[in-house]
Amino acid sequence: MLRLVINRLLLGAITVALASAIIFGAVEALPGDACVAVLQRDAVGQRLENCRRELGLDRPALTRYAHWAAGALRGDLGVSAGSGKPIATLLGERLRNTLLLAGCTLAVGIPLALLLGVLTGLRRDGLLDVVLSTGGILAMTVPEFVSATVLIFVFSIGLGWVPGIVLAAPGAPIGDFFPGIVLPVAVLTMVMTAHILRTVRSSIIEVMASDFVRMATLKGVRRARIVWRHALPSALLPAVNVIALTIAWLLGGVVVVEKVFNYPGLGRFMIDSITERDLPVVQALALLVASVYVTINLAADLLTLALDPRLRTHRGRG
């Protein structure tokens, strides 16, 4: 068991290292460099050379990669080519905001999705199931900017209950994000709930038809306990991976929603940096998102191990 965990951790570290190399290589392969990108038409002669020296771009690529990677390990991601501020600080603020948005969405969305998924699965083809399943498909297929616009129109412009955009600056205290955060959370919850709900629903249906659930019924176990104790651990397994992907998606920056609501998170930061061709920031953001994906998937793997004892002792055979 411990070996398994260490194995996964090592594999995760290797994945992040590989990702960092690929990101660095990709940025390197772009025509021009950060200085050319930022200085644009002024990128000639002495100014270009000065800029390159400042950012260390005059050294060979391998040295720069080593320097960048070593810095990233310490939490030093270099400076923004555009603003000259340390990237770590800029990123830190946006990361906090994204965590806040993701955290609120998950806190509302996951319990809701699991509960509704279980209920629809247990009452298959009942009224609740039909309504929620149809609603789920609708929520999944309607693009976020459409649902966001509709929500803003109804709750912000029409009813005037909550603000339609977030006006707080990236570094503002958390309190400033409320109540502006309500609508973005609502939009994100709609999208993620639908995905998880459908997964949980189908796996509940499958598990409730399994031999061990029938055995528990014939053992005289009450239905509520069957669902909670016998069926749920197995039924949640497929949901864990969907939830992990959802979390990674939320943390990786939900570009559209952040843009629509003017929310100062990672997604908007990414878009802005790309438009400004601030390559060091883009590079740092890509590395952060890659690490987030790896970490979340690792967490999901470990949770799966906890839920399914069969995987703990399973050794790859053949």
Partner: peptide
């Protein structure tokens, strides 16, 4: 009925490997 089931009248299932709850 649930009180009789599994108590006064108990079932021994086919393929116990699948009839026992895997997570317990």
């Amino acid at each position: 009925v649930p009180r009789i089931r599994g108590g006064r009248l108990a079932l021994i299932p086919q393929n116990a490997g699948q009839a026992l709850t895997p997570s317990m």
